[in-house]
């Protein structure tokens, strides 16, 4: 849709090259268009490639930073001094963690001493879809913190499990898990109050809370029971479960 206003009296070149009366042959036109398009392609692909090369190192660095930031939410960097990302072991696909693919567990140490394990888990019974969790379990078996890494819960209803969406900024719902020991879970009290447990859930929106609570409880038990083995494994290896 071209409006007459689009053609301003600034230009003295003919308006559209197509209107020129020459009628060259099809082959000649194809050759010309192919050449021109080729030239443009080379120039602009080069431009893109150049930018790519320029930004690649920065991109790699920021991907790394991104991961550390997520970990930092459950385990502040001041608590450890090792290269966390390098000190990782692979966990097999574990139903207790809600994962059907192998995942990584990072080991935080301070002065060589085990501090905490950072790992992923997943709650599969959220209101809508899976809820991804990142947990940090301290060496004494207490949960350092848990965060939701990704979810699709109903906005405004179930999404308070993510502290960024939680209206109560000073005391987010998910903070109530911090510092709880795994004995609580073993004792069967790692549940929302409605189910007879210890944890709150907001009225009218218990499904998301229940899913996160149950998943984090199960994950905590599983990891806490294997924490010694996990710290002992050499970096880069996979945890081998003995089949009972």
């Amino acid at each position: 849709m071209s409006d007459p206003q689009d053609r301003l009296p600034l230009d003295d070149t003919p308006p559209a090259p197509g209107e020129v009366q020459r009628q060259p042959g099809a082959m000649k036109v194809s050759a010309r268009t192919a050449t021109v398009l080729l030239l443009f392609t080379i120039v602009f692909t080069a431009l893109m490639a150049f930018t790519h090369d320029m930004t690649k190192p920065i991109l790699d660095a920021s991907a790394q930073a991104q991961k550390l930031k997520l970990i930092g939410e459950v385990l502040p960097p001041t608590l450890y001094d090792n290269d966390l990302l390098a000190d990782a072991v692979t966990l097999p696909a574990t139903p207790a963690l809600g994962l059907d693919e192998p995942s990584l567990a990072y080991r935080a140490r301070k002065g060589g001493e085990p501090v905490a394990l950072v790992f992923e888990a997943c709650a599969n019974n959220g209101y809508s879809g899976r809820i991804g969790l990142v947990l940090a379990v301290l060496a004494d078996g207490r949960l350092r913190a848990v965060r939701v890494s990704q979810h699709k819960e109903t906005p405004g209803l179930g999404d308070y499990i993510d502290p960024k969406k939680d209206k109560n900024k000073s005391n987010p719902w998910i903070e109530q898990f911090s510092g709880q020991g795994y004995d609580l879970a073993l004792g069967g009290h790692w549940k929302v109050k409605k189910d007879g447990g210890r944890f709150d859930a907001r009225a009218g929106a218990t499904i998301s809370a229940r899913a996160v609570t149950n998943a984090s409880g199960k994950a905590l038990i599983w990891i806490a029971e294997r924490r010694a083995a996990l710290f002992a494994l050499p970096a880069g290896t996979t945890l081998q479960e003995k089949t009972p």
């Binding site: 109903t154 906005p155 405004g156 209803l157 907001r202 009225a203 009218g204 929106a205």
Partner: peptide, 10 residues
């Protein structure tokens, strides 16, 4: 219900 799902569920 989209804006106030919690209040609309009580």
């Amino acid at each position: 219900i989209v804006a106030y799902p919690q209040l609309m569920s009580q």
